[in-house]
Nucleic acid binder design. Structure first.
Length: 453
RNA sequence: UCCAGAGUAGCUCAAUGGUAGAGCACGCGGCUGUUAACCGUGUGGUUGUAGGUUCGAGUCCUACCUCUGGAGCCA
């Protein structure tokens, strides 16, 4: 029976007969025996195997090359040499699948750009193994966080007919062949449909029934964005809470990020050590800071004053009523506060229709959580729960009320104050691993002009 | 989409307008409880594509393609 390398490396005593099945990272030949370094992805580390020339299978040792897969049986013994606690004394080796000299993953380091061109093989590298183990663990942590706080997981639709949610350009979903004269009514759903850009509006309906809910699913934006932090397909987490205001929303957002950082420190230590050493030297310090210190909270108007008084020459001028530019966000979170920073109460003109209007009649209950190195990682708000005000907001945003009849109904029947936010899972991963490009924290990145694999 | 930069061996990179090279990978030989092993040696090229200037272009010019960084949009 196969034993994962993860369990062998964590052994507390020698083991008599074990079977390992893995991919060969490298082979080093010595006089009369060979070292095989095996990795099965179950953990960061590899297992060193010592294969004597007399062991069954050794006659074919030349084919045990980097990238090949193999089965090795043997005894787990304490290693006499430096570098590893345990090693496997092989009693039998068997090649499962060969890898010839064209195998592109060398023992040496590769650039991230090159590895993106072999996205089907890069999970076998140290970095990407670590990234995707961490990704899996954090996905689990997301559910654990919400489930332990009595949130229900809601599967909002991937296909939506709402073409004006305001979150971004949408991908069309159609079964039409694109022939001239085809009418939308002839399409599969009888009307134009799209891939979702957010599950928020739908999940609000469940918050107004089950109280605390969240989504965690794929999200699509057809924006022609070419940056290190945008992808056309990404995973978004959207909690929504009934009987909750902006303060409760900000509390949850900060608690959530802290919990994810804590979880990474506690459960991904080995992979994290690799990130801290080779990807981002400041990672450990940053994660501990995030866990231990409260986030800064600053109203938008105050943030504008800070930027104006900074004496800094920004490329884009700082003006009340305009969105914060990347350089402004970076200044606030990286230089001024040197801390994750939540900016709230934005001018109503620059935010969507569903955000609640404050008593000053000028700002809405929006909040963005900015983190050093990434920028915006969370965007959220308390929702407008007053029917008349919502109608007015929609008019101001030139939206057709009829398209949102069910959304407005939530305010018509038993309306409640409620709030939530959206968080890009990949951006969270970037923040927690130090990996600087979103294409490197998602298995197969979809970006403009690129849907290979 | 805009601005900037880069495309040369499988990978990472050199190469005054004048004979395309190195390290690594890979092959072969040697050595060794090795561990990004080591020593020797060999194979490896339509210099992103298409034009142009020139006696001569990897190098200069034009267009296009791809990638990277920054910006916008956002999560």
């Amino acid at each position: 029976m196969r034993t994962l390398i993860k369990h062998l490396l964590a052994a507390t005593q020698p083991l008599d007969t074990v079977t390992v099945q893995a991919w060969i990272r490298t082979r080093r030949d010595a006089k009369g025996f060979s070292f095989l370094e095996l990795n099965d992805g179950s953990c960061f580390g590899s297992l060193q195997c010592v294969v004597d020339a007399g062991a069954p299978g050794y006659e074919g040792i030349a084919a045990f090359t980097t990238g090949a897969s193999a089965t090795v049986e043997g005894r787990l013994v304490a290693s006499p040499a430096q570098g590893q606690k345990w090693e496997l004394r092989a009693t039998r080796i068997e090649l499962v699948g060969p890898a010839d000299s064209t195998y592109p993953l060398q023992k040496k380091g590769h650039t991230l750009e090159f590895l993106r061109t072999i996205a089907h093989l890069r999970p076998r590298s140290n970095l990407f193994g670590a990234v995707f183990r961490t990704r899996s663990r954090l996905a689990f942590a997301v559910h654990e966080f919400f489930q332990s706080r009595d949130f229900f997981y809601i599967h909002t639709p991937i296909i939506t007919a709402s073409d004006c949610e305001g979150a971004g350009e949408m991908f069309r979903v159609t079964t039409l062949k694109g022939k001239p004269g085809e009418k939308p009514e002839a399409d599969f759903f009888g009307k134009p449909t799209y891939l979702t850009v957010s599950g928020q509006l739908e999940v609000e309906t469940f918050a107004c029934a089950l109280s605390n809910v969240y989504t965690f699913g794929p999200t699509f934006r057809a924006e022609n964005s070419n940056t290190a932090r945008h992808a056309a397909e990404f995973w978004m987490i959207e909690p929504e809470m009934a009987f909750c205001d902006l303060n409760g929303d900000m509390d949850l957002a900060e608690e959530f990020i802290k919990a994810m950082a804590r979880h990474t420190l506690e459960h991904c230590a080995e992979d994290l050590a690799f990130f801290a050493r080779f990807v981002d030297k400041t990672l450990n310090e940053r994660l501990k800071f995030v866990v231990e210190r409260p986030f800064v909270r600053v109203p938008y108007a105050e943030a504008i004053e800070i930027l104006k008084k900074s004496g800094r020459q920004f490329e884009f001028p700082v003006n009340y009523g305009q969105n914060l530019q990347s350089e402004h966000e970076r200044f606030l979170t990286e230089e001024h506060f040197k801390s994750p920073t939540t900016v709230f109460n934005y001018p109503r003109e620059i935010k969507p229709f569903y955000m609640r209007l404050n008593d000053d009649q000028k700002t809405v209950t929006a909040m963005d959580v900015l983190v050093p190195g990434i920028g915006e990682v969370i965007g959220g708000a308390q929702r407008e729960e007053r029917p008349a005000q919502l109608a007015e907001n929609m008019k101001a945003h030139q939206l057709n009320e009829k398209d949102y009849w069910w959304y407005a109904d939530l305010r018509r029947y038993g309306t409640v104050p409620h709030a939530g936010f959206g968080l890009g899972f990949e951006r969270l991963l970037m923040f927690l691993t130090g990996v600087a490009n979103i294409r490197d924290v998602i298995p197969f990145a979809r970006t403009p002009g690129s849907a290979e694999f």
